[in-house]
Design a binder for these strands. Structure first.
Length: 234
DNA sequence: GCGACAG
DNA sequence: ATCTTGTCGC
């Protein structure tokens, strides 16, 4: 995929925060992914004490969810993990992975928040803007806002609120299992984002794009990505 | 000043 | 995120 613009990542935390405050204005909180026929999941993996990040993107056809392409990229991260600044840690490796992706997904799932972020620019929104592509944030825990417990049944939801505004939705993708926290990344509305998460969550807590990216990222880091899995890693 | 805090 | 074995529950 084409990346929208060169973007500095060798910043101090204070500079990174200022960049987020500037980029947040470019996030589109509404939109329609259109006729979705291709989705993608992006994720990163790394070993405990190391600063090498393995980022991957997995593309799947929709609605059948067959994996059609997998790419990966390794990079030394220039940033430690700081809540709210995740993109500055995983972004460089992710961008390289997207450069290697030949598919043109209609929507991309990210492992983390979209606008449900202290400055409205979680990794899904940040990457969505850089890629200029519909993006959805699917986080396993909450970073900003408050939420009540959704009903126990699959498909139950509860709004994530901040100052009276809905910034995302807790979504129960599997009965009696902890919900995932969905928020708009870029160029898609919350309603369609939630629909797509539920439509791609099949039997597991995490939607398939995210789950497949998780599995592949770990396989690549362990070194058996090439041997065990089909498709290109090139 | 004291907690909270995506991955 | 990662380190780790078995184990309880649907």
């Amino acid at each position: 995929m084409e990346i929208r613009e060169a973007h500095p990542f060798d910043l101090t935390p204070a500079e990174a925060i200022r960049l987020q405050e500037r980029l947040r204005e470019q996030v589109r909180r509404s939109g329609d992914a259109g006729e979705v026929s291709l989705v993608a999941g992006a994720d990163a993996s790394y070993a405990k004490g190391e600063d090498v990040i393995h980022a991957v993107v997995v593309a799947l056809s929709y609605p059948d969810l067959t994996v059609v392409e997998r790419v990966s990229a390794a990079a030394v991260t220039p940033f430690p993990y700081i809540p709210g600044l995740l993109t500055f840690r995983e972004g460089p490796a992710l961008i390289e992975a997207f450069r290697r992706l030949r598919s043109e997904p209609d929507v991309i799932f990210f492992d983390g928040q979209g606008i449900a972020h202290p400055r409205g620019l979680g990794i899904a929104s940040h990457m969505g803007v850089l890629l200029d592509r519909p993006a959805i944030g699917v986080a396993k825990s909450l970073l900003a806002g408050t939420v009540s417990e959704p009903g126990a049944g699959r498909g139950s939801t509860a709004p994530i609120l901040r100052d009276g505004e809905t910034i995302g939705m807790a979504v129960r993708t599997r009965e009696r299992v902890k919900p995932v926290y969905v928020s708009v990344g870029h160029r898609i509305d919350l309603s369609q984002a939630v629909d797509l998460v539920l439509a791609t969550a099949r039997g597991y807590r995490l939607p398939e794009p995210t789950r497949q990216a998780h599995l592949f990222a770990n396989a690549v880091r362990r070194g058996d990505g090439q041997a065990t899995l089909p498709s290109s890693t090139r």
